[in-house]
């Protein structure tokens, strides 16, 4: 193994890491150096758990594991105990990916599987405690962690009838998970991915369009608890999810038509779960559900295509 190196670097995965760098820097700026420590812990735990399985398969650890761990860490709330971050990513990598045979074989997105696991098990830490980001010029660069407790994320404020400015959501100086708050930098990262053709734009586009459409319909239809569409799309984990998680090439379907359906399904489910369920955030569950039905969508599209061919 030694001659091949311990890590198998994959070009597309490296590009995703580059695209995530601004978001990582923003998380340090807004929430202090601790976010980098959580990121490192998650990456180490992820590497270690994949390494155990890679030895069993007599294979190399793929660089995709760092993408999973980084995405996972960015979707955690600040001040999450290290133990939970580690438990989550180990679950995600082991049960979300390695038991299926490793990179390229997984059905579910490992980062999302891990996050959902701790979201359900430690819901107080995952949803109940939010912290104000640093708002002065130096930001979090001068301190380890934030300690200004605040009650609610923008989404919760909006849901209870408060106001949050769109600019704040774009810049990201709002309460929320490490890497989810700064929409602008995430979008820049996303554009880089689309222009280098690393991520398939169909997935993100259909997801955003479907979510915006349904959100607008609910909001202007006067449904209780529905957020204004633009605010809803920029708040919470939707931007991170739509750009980086929906486009995961392994768990998404393979043909173009099914990609449109898959993205739209996730967009619609995100809005439905956000608006009506007991959970504040829907993007994560929506992606898991999307992963779950992706193979079926692919199958159905292929069947219909082959039937049409037979008829013609």
């Amino acid at each position: 193994m030694a001659d091949k190196g311990i890590i198998k670097w994959q070009k597309p995965m490296q590009k995703v890491l580059y695209a995530l760098t601004p978001a990582v820097l923003a998380s340090v700026y807004f929430f202090g150096w601790r976010s980098l420590a959580v990121l490192a812990a998650a990456n180490l735990a992820a590497y270690a758990s994949e390494y155990c399985f890679a030895r069993y398969y007599k294979d190399q650890v793929t660089s995709a594991v760092f993408v999973s761990a980084t995405l996972f860490a960015l979707s955690l709330p600040p001040n999450i105990p290290f133990s939970m971050a580690v438990i989550g990513i180990i679950f995600g990598i082991v049960f979300g990916k390695m038991v299926f045979g490793g990179f390229g074989k997984n059905v579910f997105n490992p980062a999302i599987a891990g996050r959902a696991f701790i979201y359900i098990n430690f819901s107080t830490e995952m949803t109940g405690r939010w912290f104000e980001p640093f708002r002065d010029k130096l930001g979090g660069l001068s301190s380890y962690t934030t300690d200004a407790v605040c009650g609610a994320t923008p989404m919760q404020v909006l849901k209870s009838g408060g106001e949050v400015s769109l600019l704040d959501l774009l810049v990201g100086n709002t309460a929320g998970c490490f890497g989810e708050t700064c929409a602008a930098l995430l979008i820049i990262g996303g554009l880089y991915l689309f222009f280098t053709k690393t991520a398939n734009y169909r997935l993100t586009l259909s997801c955003v369009l479907a979510a915006a459409g349904l959100q607008a319909a609910l909001y202007y239809g006067g449904v209780q608890g529905a957020l204004p569409p633009l605010h809803a799309l920029l708040s919470g984990g939707f931007v991170l999810a739509a750009i980086f998680m929906v486009t995961d090439p392994v768990s998404a379907p393979k043909s173009d038509i099914s990609r449109w359906i898959y993205g739209a399904l996730i967009g619609v489910l995100t809005v439905v779960i956000r608006t009506f369920s007991i959970w504040a955030e829907g993007a994560m569950f929506a992606i898991l559900l999307g992963n779950m039905f992706a193979p079926l969508i692919d199958y159905a599209v292929n069947e219909i295509k082959s039937k049409k061919k037979k008829a013609a």
Binding site: F100, V107, F108, A116, I120, F276, W279, F285, L288
Partner: peptide, 27 residues
């Protein structure tokens, strides 16, 4: 992996599916 093939992996998938369906709680 050998020991998980068949029913084992199916139960793991079912478990993650159940987590995903928890998203609907309260809808």
């Amino acid at each position: 992996p050998g020991p998980l093939a068949g029913t084992g992996i199916a139960l793991i998938i079912a478990g993650i599916m159940a987590i995903a369906f928890m998203g609907f709680s309260g809808v």
